[in-house]
Design a protein around this nucleic acid. Structure first.
Lengths: 199, 199
DNA sequence: CCCTTTCCGCTACCCGCGTAGCGTATAGGG
DNA sequence: CCCTATACGCTACGCGGGTAGCGGAAAGGG
């Protein structure tokens, strides 16, 4: 399984140090303030060395964000409404984690939007991003299916559609309208989705 | 009301011609393929003349898209479910209108994502974009409120939340998961949102 | 011990966005 | 008729992302 390494091995410290510096710049100054030239210079390496590891700035930025997001878990209390509200809040907190230093809470649109665009520019970046979502959504899907099996939710409910309604509304607010996402909104959102709109 | 113009007036044909060329490039090659240098050269004007009218490439691209999108109307048949499905399809069609030439239908993520990012980069671009959405959503809100007043929808329903659920799910698919949006999906989505998830 | 492979740092370069500064053209206002 | 404000075209430049090509360094394999 372990591929035999040929040729001169990479300096191991470089990856960690570059990610550290890139994280610092991204969180401090936002996506536009993250410069590959500056990261390379501060890390004391040649730009070409950086580009050998991350073929574009977009790849580097995604790597940074992945490290910031890899902590999510989902709690299952048996109260589906409460669990979904918690899940929404966790997503919002994750988005908030990549807002610019000094920026208003709930206003992380810049970096998120740039990453979405990055995913559209490079297939592999988009694929990696989608994997992040897929893993998280798989957990949430199980949550919903559990509730459905014990009779709390409609038998014909498609968990994916419900999740898209909920997470979609969140992202719509963050990316498009720019309105903040707080717990009060998460509660209204989940309540509306669960109870439906029909009289 | 009409401000008296001082100084040399702008050449009127330039605006139309630049928008024409920019539209062509944007639809043909996508956001990255739209180059201010090339537009200016093809239009036979100096780059500075272009930048006097649109202060950044992002502003120019938004102007192009606004022209492409200004046709939307909403039909009110009295059947709220059908009207909402139609509305979802109109949004999807609008997104599709700015996909790259030769690209798969439903795969307009690139340009849309870049525009969202552009809105985050420049406050005024974001504001203009939000105005586009606000106008369209105001119409849809009236549709929903009409249905609510005649008793078809819950009295305590917040129209804005319902709209965010629906449009949000659409954009979530287009921007994040990259899955296509067709009429079948619109129907499932609206049905789930209206009937709710609870058993 | 050489050979190949990969990495590294360096310099030099292209491209696209956006700006600065200049001389000139063209309008309205006194 | 001049004055001022604005537009225009031009050249030159700065910045950031990304690539090409070189000489040299560090590993494994025959």
């Amino acid at each position: 399984m372990t591929e035999t390494r040929r040729g001169r091995p990479r300096k191991a410290e470089v990856d960690a140090e570059v990610l550290r510096l890139a994280t610092e710049l991204l969180l401090e100054r936002g996506y536009g303030g993250l410069s590959t030239d500056e990261v390379a210079e501060r890390a004391g390496i040649a730009k070409t060395t950086l580009y050998r590891r991350w073929p574009t700035k977009d790849h580097l930025a995604l790597a940074v964000v992945r490290r910031l997001q890899d902590h999510d878990e989902i709690t299952d209390t048996g109260d589906i409404e409460r669990d979904l509200v918690d899940y929404m809040e966790k997503i919002a907190a994750g988005l908030d984690r990549m807002r610019t230093a000094g920026g208003d809470p709930g206003r992380s649109a810049g970096t998120v939007a740039e990453l979405v665009a990055a995913g559209a520019r490079h297939d592999d970046v988009g694929e990696l991003g989608r994997e992040m979502y897929a893993r998280r959504n798989a957990l949430a899907c199980r949550l919903i299916e559990g509730a459905r099996e014990r009779g709390a939710l409609r038998a014909d409910l498609d968990p994916a559609v419900l999740l898209e309604q909920l997470a979609g509304a969140l992202y719509y607010r963050v990316l498009i309208t720019g309105e903040p996402v707080d717990r009060a909104y998460a509660e209204r959102l989940v309540a509306t989705a669960l109870r439906g709109a029909l009289a």
